[in-house]
Design a protein around this nucleic acid. Sequence first.
DNA 1: GTGCTTTCGATACGAGTCGTAGCGTAACGG
DNA 2: CCGTTACGCTACGACTCGTATCGAAAGCAC
Lengths: 208, 208
Amino acid sequence: MQSRSSAARATGRPRSAAADAAILEATRAALVELGWSRLTLGDVAMRAGVAKTTLYRRWAGKNELVVDAVAELFDELELPDSGSLAADIEGVVLQFAAILDRPEAKSGLMAVVAEATRDEALRERVRASIVDRQKRLVLEGRARAQARGELPVEDDPAAAAATVDLIFDMVAGAVVHRTLVSAEPVTEDWARRFAQMLLQGLTNTSPA
Amino acid sequence: MQSRSSAARATGRPRSAAADAAILEATRAALVELGWSRLTLGDVAMRAGVAKTTLYRRWAGKNELVVDAVAELFDELELPDSGSLAADIEGVVLQFAAILDRPEAKSGLMAVVAEATRDEALRERVRASIVDRQKRLVLEGRARAQARGELPVEDDPAAAAATVDLIFDMVAGAVVHRTLVSAEPVTEDWARRFAQMLLQGLTNTSPA
DNA sequence: GTGCTTTCGATACGAGTCGTAGCGTAACGG
DNA sequence: CCGTTACGCTACGACTCGTATCGAAAGCAC
């Protein structure tokens, strides 16, 4: 959202919070029915029972609106404390996949990422609203695994950050690619195989 | 392309092959300058020096056109025979990343994938034109590594296919996510770390 | 060459979307 | 009660879409 800076304007009629919620909900519904390309802001406004001008007063355009609408889907993401690193990975992968499987996430997320390649501000918005929320799970899971002694501790903070980024891109990338590009479902079996592959590596394949 | 079935019509004026090339090239140029959302077919036609009707005669719409235009970028992909699995992986990753780094691939590919989530025919087109071409590299690299004794041979063909799919999603997914979502460059160092992580796994981290 | 067939370039068209402007009304705070 | 801002509504010019139509051009069979 674009919370009117920190010192919010105290005078005048306040913006309807209900309208915000209705608009974002309507955006997701429109994404499900129409997909990204056929989604129009006029249609969203009508679904939300809101004038088109109200919509433009709060969001700069389609891109920003859809980022916010999709970002809310990732609110439910949380790291399950399963007791082992392998189980943690499987749990996060299945959660992430369940969100990506929803049609409003499928069509919206990739389209926004595509637009973000040419728009620095939008890229930053995606990072803050969606990506960072996911990456935090990697940080937490890694810390827990290190506390359990399942993973070695890296002293060099720069190297540690690079490792976290690498793991993040591998986990999130694999799930996204499987779901959206290969268009195959992320089953429990796939998550198990993935976690084992990530932990043991390609060469140490012990048939489950 | 949509080669008029196998038994091509032999009579009448043949379609200009030069126009095909000019249109695809113009599409890539427009992707670079305008990105996906601002790209219009009228503009592409003008750039290619072709009437808009000619364009619509060959492609059903923006989606199909961009798939073909982007697919050509992946023609140069090939598996370098480096002598070791790790080096092969690094080589492919760097090649793939180099293509993804081009702006016409960045903005075009993700947008098409997003549209494909709601269009079965388009999804099949993407698979045939782009995905399968990449997956072949995994198959070849795996076969070579098995011949060298670097990887175990799986007897069950179904399990082997699942493994190939898993590896493919992990490699391609990581590179795509790193490049387009995290928006960070795939350097030689990153490729090296990735290959080691994929081969040795998360637990067997030996600081390079 | 002479037809026949299909493509090509050009133009025009209705339909739909865009983002903005104007205006009167509604909802708050001092 | 009054100033300020949000809201709903309508209308607008500009643009893109995909299609239709037409005469001209290019190849192939004969």
